[in-house]
């Protein structure tokens, strides 16, 4: 990474401004698609702080969407007198805090597992949270939970949430970028590569994994709070979703595992394919997604960014190879 930090931030913010203006010309359907793309990309980047950078691929991050959403909703329900502009920030604070507590509590036992064992244990965490939420009456998981309308009256709610996802996504992206280029990020990278060797070199692996896990969980939870508000009404089934659990891994696989841009590219691609290209083939789209995934993993195990990298390497090799 040789790019100058200021230039990088400027480019990212420039892209954000372009995306922010897009709803002015996009038809409503595409604003919806854009919402889903930005929300998914934000989740994918939050996931990759742990799954991509540290190599701890979680198969249960929807737990944090659900816990964040329900914690926020249950508190907001009791604060109905407050202006809506205050409710969303309060909800995000509560949801983020709930995810921080949950992730810190499960971090110690669960981060001792590696590879698929960790992934499956996270799926278990997600299902346990969902079941508890569903069966404890005060948590209103099965009954459902209403969220206040927080979009200002002058705004189209679809556009409002589009911009909100965009802002949140940019924040998550910049946080992940800062992590990746820091000493902490180098430590996570060494954990992904070889955890025992990392520890031998003095990387405080346990502490780093825990921090990455909590950061990833909190950011996921914040996005979950926004998501719940955009839905307006949630039950456990609408937030603790196994297809979200799966998609978060697929985004990174498609775009490039362990990279910063990979999850964004993967999320944009997959949402576009499923929502636009295959929109009319509802029965077909799960099959097509599966097929696409199998093909991509076989043909390009490094994802889209992996393809670009190997193409560059081949070009360099061709340029330096002696002429026959």
């Amino acid at each position: 990474m040789t790019q100058k930090p200021a230039a990088f931030v400027a480019i990212i913010l420039g892209c954000a401004v372009v995306l922010a203006l897009a709803p002015l010309i996009l038809p409503p359907f595409y604003v919806r698609v854009g919402q889903l793309m930005l929300y998914s990309a934000g989740l994918a980047v939050a996931w990759t702080i742990l799954g991509g950078f540290a190599g701890y691929a979680s198969f249960g991050h929807a737990a944090f969407i659900g816990v964040g959403a329900f914690a926020a909703g249950l508190v907001e329900e009791r604060l109905t007198g407050l202006p809506p502009a205050l409710l969303l920030p309060i909800g995000m604070l509560v949801g983020g805090l709930a995810c921080a507590i949950l992730s810190a509590a499960v971090a110690y036992p669960i981060l001792r597992l590696r590879g698929t064992f960790f992934a499956i244990a996270m799926l278990g965490v997600c299902h346990v949270c969902a079941e508890l939420n569903n069966n404890i009456d005060v948590l209103q998981g099965s009954l459902g939970l209403n969220f206040p309308a927080v979009a200002p009256a002058a705004w189209d709610p679809a556009v409002f949430f589009y911009e909100l996802y965009l802002a949140a996504g940019v924040v998550v992206f910049l946080i992940a970028w800062q992590i990746q280029r820091s000493r902490f990020g180098a430590g996570l990278l060494s954990i992904r590569e070889d955890e025992d060797t990392a520890r031998m070199l003095g990387v405080p692996t346990e502490r780093y994994k825990r921090i990455a896990f909590v950061a990833s969980a909190v950011l996921t939870g914040l996005l979950g709070v926004i998501y719940a508000h955009s839905l307006g009404y949630i039950t456990t089934d609408s937030v603790y979703r196994d297809d979200t659990n799966l998609s978060l891994i697929v985004y990174s696989l498609l775009g490039g595992m362990g990279t910063l841009f990979g999850p964004v590219i993967g999320a944009f691609m997959l949402v576009f394919i499923t929502q636009v290209v295959l929109a009319r083939l509802l029965d077909f789209h799960l099959f097509a997604t599966g097929l696409l995934l199998v093909l991509l993993v076989l043909a390009a195990p490094g994802g889209v960014l992996g393809l670009v990298k190997s193409w560059k390497l081949r070009r360099r090799a061709a340029a330096t190879a002696p002429a026959e």
Partner: peptide, 24 residues
């Protein structure tokens, strides 16, 4: 280590840099 355990996805300099970033 006797059996070298490099971080295979990283360059030689990046490998050594991890040691320099952490360690003592």
């Amino acid at each position: 280590f006797q059996i070298a355990r490099p971080f295979r996805d990283l360059s030689v300099a990046e490998n050594v840099r991890i040691g320099a970033l952490f360690g003592k």
